Simulated assay, not measured.
Amino acid sequence: MEIRAVQGDITRQDVDAVVNAANNAMRGGGGVDGAIHRVGGPAVLADCIARFPDGLATGDAGWTTAGNLPARWVIHTVGPDRRAGQTDRSLLVSCYRRSLEVADELGATSIAFPLISAGVYAWPKSDAVRAAVETLRTTPTQVREARIVAFDEATYALVEKAITSPDPG
């Protein structure tokens, strides 16, 4: 799989599936979640309510329509919230692994990820980048292209460095 760093807006990625850093309730929120719901429109929320009436567990992933997004699907995953005491790194790794598994179930060959849990959920950015790159490199998948979309230049530089380094740790 080719892993690429992209600086920009995840809602503008023309890929099979866009990953949403969702909350447990699966009803929209702030940050990436809010942007995906705003651009995707009401169909994304309606599908979340239908598919996930009880929400989704931290570390798990599931899919919905992408609504008005250029992608075909949104893969929602719930990252660990360090502010709430969720410090188990395996939950963060599970977000990437489960998202790839869902992508495989859908037949998606291209996927765009945000940096899960590195925003309002306060995961240290450098470790969030390492977890993303390591997991994407080591998880068996049919996905051919995975993008890690960074909103700002500093995060993009961290992601690009981790991707081009033989060992992101």
Rank of each mutant, 00 (worst) to 15 (best):
residue 1 M to I: 04
residue 6 V to R: 15
residue 11 T to W: 03
residue 14 D to P: 00
residue 15 V to R: 02
residue 15 V to K: 00
residue 17 A to L: 02
residue 18 V to N: 05
residue 26 M to A: 08
residue 27 R to S: 04
residue 28 G to F: 07
residue 29 G to K: 06
residue 32 V to Q: 00
residue 32 V to S: 07
residue 33 D to L: 08
residue 34 G to F: 09
residue 35 A to F: 05
residue 36 I to S: 08
residue 38 R to Q: 12
residue 40 G to F: 00
residue 42 P to Y: 05
residue 44 V to F: 09
residue 52 F to E: 04
residue 53 P to A: 11
residue 60 D to L: 12
residue 61 A to R: 00
residue 62 G to S: 10
residue 62 G to A: 13
residue 63 W to F: 13
residue 67 G to A: 01
residue 69 L to R: 05
residue 69 L to K: 05
residue 70 P to C: 07
residue 71 A to S: 14
residue 72 R to W: 04
residue 74 V to I: 12
residue 75 I to S: 10
residue 75 I to C: 08
residue 76 H to V: 01
residue 76 H to L: 03
residue 79 G to F: 10
residue 82 R to D: 13
residue 83 R to C: 11
residue 86 Q to W: 02
residue 86 Q to L: 04
residue 87 T to E: 13
residue 89 R to A: 13
residue 90 S to F: 04
residue 92 L to I: 09
residue 92 L to S: 10
residue 93 V to K: 01
residue 94 S to R: 11
residue 94 S to V: 00
residue 95 C to P: 01
residue 95 C to T: 09
residue 96 Y to D: 03
residue 96 Y to N: 01
residue 96 Y to M: 00
residue 98 R to M: 12
residue 99 S to M: 08
residue 101 E to R: 11
residue 102 V to D: 11
residue 103 A to C: 09
residue 104 D to E: 09
residue 106 L to T: 12
residue 111 I to Q: 02
residue 112 A to D: 03
residue 113 F to Y: 15
residue 113 F to N: 01
residue 113 F to V: 04
residue 114 P to D: 05
residue 115 L to F: 10
residue 116 I to T: 00
residue 117 S to A: 15
residue 118 A to V: 09
residue 118 A to D: 02
residue 123 W to R: 01
residue 125 K to D: 05
residue 127 D to Y: 13
residue 130 R to P: 02
residue 135 T to C: 01
residue 136 L to H: 09
residue 137 R to W: 10
residue 140 P to C: 06
residue 140 P to A: 10
residue 143 V to H: 05
residue 143 V to P: 03
residue 144 R to P: 01
residue 149 V to S: 07
residue 150 A to E: 07
residue 153 E to D: 14
residue 153 E to V: 08
residue 153 E to T: 15
residue 153 E to F: 13
residue 157 A to G: 10
residue 157 A to R: 15
residue 157 A to S: 12
residue 158 L to Y: 10
residue 158 L to M: 15
residue 160 E to Q: 13
residue 160 E to P: 02
residue 161 K to A: 15
residue 161 K to Q: 14
residue 162 A to L: 09
residue 164 T to Y: 11
residue 164 T to N: 14
residue 165 S to E: 11
residue 167 D to Y: 12
